[in-house]
Design a binder for these strands. Sequence first.
RNA 1: GUGGAAUUAGCUCAGUCGGUUAGAGUGCCAGGUUGUGGCCCUGGAGGUCGUGGGUUCGAUUCCCAUAUUCCACCCCA
Length: 420
Amino acid sequence: MNITAPRGTKDILPDEISRWHAVENLFASVCERYGYGEIRTPTFEKTELFARGVGDSTDIVRKEMYTFDDKAGRSMTLRPEGTAGIARAYIENGMASLPSPVKLYYDMSFFRYEKMQKGRYREFWQLGCEIFGSSSAYADAEIIAVLDTFFTELGLSERQLELGSIGCPECRPDFITALRAHFEADLDKMCADCQERFEINPLRILDCKVETCQPFIATAPSQLDYLCGACDEHFAKVKLALDELDITYNVNRSMVRGLDYYTRTVFEYVSTHVGTQGSICGGGRYDGLVEILGGKHTPAVGFAMGIERLLLEIEAQEVEFPPLAPLDLFIISFPDTAVSALALAQKMIRSGLIVQTDVMERSLKAQMKQADRSSAQYMLVFGAEELESKQFLLKRLSDGVEHTVAVDDLADYLLKAREK
RNA sequence: GUGGAAUUAGCUCAGUCGGUUAGAGUGCCAGGUUGUGGCCCUGGAGGUCGUGGGUUCGAUUCCCAUAUUCCACCCCA
């Protein structure tokens, strides 16, 4: 083995791709029914976009980005997430002048330099949605409704939605002050990471999993108790809308987000099936992002869902997919009819059928075996006699029943056979 | 970034207490006579035992390094 795929990347082979297509096609279908349009942004952007948009203090920006200088010496970065690039595109393309709200969805791959684990890759795919221009809690509710419909139609019955609010620039400082006050006294009894978090971002202490820190975290105040009037009202409205939509959720009093741009509503779909990477999908409101990137103040809300993790979850929950369309016909030929068989296959394929014929110049028996393994519905042997008579003995592989069909009726016959 | 485990055929795995040509199942290819598959039988191809060093008369086996994957942290989708 000479050259291998770079660490953290992987090939998706035909065997697996049908599941990807099923997920991606369903997602597109659901999004379009909710009135979202697809957007694709560049694979790399100026580094500054992520430094500003995602946040300098985040792990993503500090240690996980694939950053390089291009030949003109400009710093570029492979996109580590989608929202910053989409917000940039929203501003740059004057989408603010489109009728509000602007609803977008995407299906793109992202890059983060992380240590490999199950459900965690260096190039990974996300499906996501964004709504720009609405500050209403109903936009938050709709974003979650999109996901609920998607999961329902996918057949993913087991799902857990964690919901919280991290407040806004008005009320978060008060909460952080309260957090610091709470932890300060016992800080020396907590882990080294937490002591560092205390300085950099006390919110992160709430995420700590070290055993000895738990007692202090359990008694810590919650952002939910420190929401300002407007944030509190917003959160209540989101919950009300979800109740009305029959979407169950668990109010999580200690949710934290890794990206700086989140405000107010945050949510996450979690699972126990995808290793320690419990989060399948995360999202929330980011009212400040467009402004941070130089646009007009534009409220927005969105989510991103990891396709690889979703597929792990699908497998764990044994979700069934509709089987692939089977081969309609396998044409078996002899050396003197092989070219005619190719032409016949071409004709059938252009009628919309799925057809294969031998391109190995194999023996009759080997072709029969190939036809069998291809799980074709029908096969026919195309020899000199058939070339002469223009009649084929069509054999149904499931039971061996044979019918004589004229060449001109072949396509119709097979198309009708599909309907059974 | 920290700690731990694994790595033998395309795939799933045996095995060698250091010793001739490293095995199985499955998959792949062909044959079992001339125009009809699945089952069965026979044969074949396919491995520098992850890679590079070291110890040794001799290493796939022991030691070190490195790569990759997995697990726990960390982080996130």
